[in-house]
Design a protein around this nucleic acid. Structure first.
Lengths: 131, 131
DNA sequence: CGGGATCCTGCAAGATACTG
DNA sequence: CAGTATCTTGCAGGATCCCG
């Protein structure tokens, strides 16, 4: 055993996985397909609605709006309306939202590294399947 | 700026968020409601189907089976059948699956810490909403 | 431009019953 | 015990139109 401040894996020990556990309450939102992508996009700086929409090519306006509301409700980002003509609205990460970038980045990094192995595993599985 | 080996946030810079990017390909699975919970449960050691089902109280047999197949296909866990009577099947993390525990733990840790703030943000939002 | 309101559809996922 | 098969349904989410 080493002296790391807190092995991330230790956190998982004895984790209760009941439906009402706080972690699932938070993670269910995080996992929601679009929210992480929005947070990543905003990680580079505030963006307006249209810019965000262009950054996420395959999300509908409806889902983008809804996802932004969810994130705003959870306090991960803030919404600023500029009463210009036509109106413009800017979204930016809150400190809480910024605090999520590190762990999210770790996961994304893992995903990027693991991708080749996963691709290979899928092909092997599907090949065996077809037999 | 400090000397951290690689700021997890740096990974997110310039991330392409197109639908076909590798990260989304992987994360879409990871985010799938049950898969992370299964990985966490198996992080403490191999489990049999029934034990896993008992560890995740609110998943149906159908979804558990399906999620396990997905994870097996992605090479994150392995399935071992013991031809006992009655048959028993054991699931255990593969090295690749184990390698995910660290980043996943980081995210879970964040979720646990952020939970109070998020709860509070939701209440504030809903209160303002009701007005 | 940045949404809200409405309608409509597909598929994710529950319930139930059966099997090796 | 550890699944499969079938049926059924809710609701996530797309398409479309409208508004300030």
């Amino acid at each position: 055993m080493n002296a790391q401040p807190l092995s991330a894996r230790e956190v998982l020990k004895g984790m209760d996985l009941q439906a009402d556990c706080p972690v699932r309450d938070v993670l269910d939102h995080v996992a929601a397909k679009w929210t992480t992508l929005i947070l990543i996009a905003l990680g580079e700086g505030p963006l307006r609605f249209g810019q965000l929409h262009r950054a996420l090519p395959d999300i509908s306006k409806r889902m983008l709006t809804q996802s932004l509301r969810d994130l705003e409700r959870d306090g991960l980002l803030t919404r600023h309306v500029f009463p210009t003509k036509p109106p413009s609205v800017e979204y930016r990460l809150s400190p809480l939202g910024v605090s999520m970038l590190a762990p999210l980045g770790a996961l994304v990094d893992w995903a990027a590294r693991a991708h080749p192995a996963i691709q290979q595993a899928r092909q092997a599985y599907d090949a065996a399947e077809a037999a």
